[in-house]
Amino acid sequence: MEFTALFLAIAITMLVAWYGSRSLAYSLFAVVLIACVATFLHHATDALKLSF
C-alpha cells in the first residue's frame, strides 16, 4: 500500500513540476524523498535470514 501511495505522490509531483509552481514541486519532492527514506529504513531494519 505504501508503494502505491509513493508512486501516486511522485506522479503528482511530476505534474506540479510540469504545470505548477517550482516551490510547490520542491516541497512535494522533499516530502516524497523523506517518505522513501523512511520506507527504506523500515525494510532495512528487517532481520536478515542468513544461514552460516
Binding site: 511522485i10 513540476a17 524523498l33
Partner: peptide, 19 residues
C-alpha cells in the same frame, strides 16, 4: 518491496529533468 523502491527512486530522479 525493495525492487519497487528502486523503481520509485528512478521515477523520482525524473523530477529534476522535468524542472
Amino acid at each position: 518491496p525493495l525492487c519497487l523502491l528502486q523503481r520509485i527512486m528512478f521515477a523520482l530522479l525524473a523530477v529534476g529533468p522535468i524542472l
